[in-house]
Design a protein around this nucleic acid. Structure first.
Lengths: 148, 148
DNA sequence: CTAAACAGCACCTATGAGGTCCTATTTTAA
DNA sequence: TTAAAATAGGACCTCATAGGTGCTGTTTAG
């Protein structure tokens, strides 16, 4: 049904929680407990988010994780990228030529445009937005100029 | 990587092919042969597209499938809907309350907005657009009014 | 009457998402 | 100095489901 992976969903929940108190340092256990998510999964996600540079970590007792940037500077797209890689609705959108149609596939370039539109939608929303009780409307720059 | 199902990809290829000659009646075998796709899969997809009302069929010898509407009147969103159901990036976007966070999940409403943005992106592109060698730019009505 | 073609199931199976566990390593605090 | 609290980084399992196949009708042109 064109959904993001469940892990990505969890990851955004984690990031949004962190975004509500950007200064505070959260341990994996704290987050798992508060958000009612399984600890091993939370730990795994935090590690991935760390490796993608979205978090900073402090090791040892009293340690934990913090957002690496301000909430408004991290987009939902970043989280999606960190957990499931670049958004590309179709195989060929990635450029990898493992599509048997490839050559005469006029559809390809158009799918790339659609993928880009989706990427823009995800980039247009920051953690700060997600932390709000309810956003107004998504503004998508770059998609309203030309009209086919 | 936030991709559509491979079957959905195939389905759009099929639909775009049909859109290039809307008057012509194609058999499953013809399409499979021309597009180099496995026949059983093509047949299955055509059946689903038929049940969703996107195609009309003629049974018996010399039969086949035709678009149920003009190419510009069928959106990529329709194809996605037919094959993988409604676009809902997260579980809770569907409304079904099988999310343990549910109550105090402020993130929910915001994900719904994002899902909607993606839907709009898919609705903004018709089969006629996809049949073009290359689209210009996607115009997304309803997403450029308010600015958060 | 026969062959072409759709209609509608039922069923298989292999990949990978989702989840668990174990073993370092680092740091604080007693 | 030691113990406990945390992160770091793997390996590994397992199960749902996307993707694919087959079979048995039914319809229709010639």
């Amino acid at each position: 049904m064109l959904r993001i992976a469940k892990l990505t969903d969890y990851a955004t929940v984690l990031m949004v929680r962190l975004a509500r108190e950007p200064a505070r340092c959260f341990s994996a256990a704290q987050l798992a407990d508060e958000l009612r998510l399984p600890l091993p999964t939370v730990a795994k996600l935090l590690k991935r988010l760390l490796q993608s540079g979205l978090l900073t970590s402090v090791r040892g007792a009293g340690g934990g994780y913090t957002l690496a940037h301000a909430p408004h500077a991290i987009a939902v797209a970043d989280v999606v990228n960190a957990i499931e890689g670049p958004v590309a609705l179709t195989e060929c959108s990635l450029g990898k030529g493992n599509c048997s149609l490839e050559k005469d596939c006029a559809t390809r370039a158009n799918w790339q445009l659609i993928s880009r539109a989706v990427r823009v939608a995800l980039e247009a929303v920051s953690l700060a937005d997600m932390a709000l009780p309810r956003m107004q409307t998504i503004r998508m720059p770059g998609l309203k100029e030309k009209t086919p």
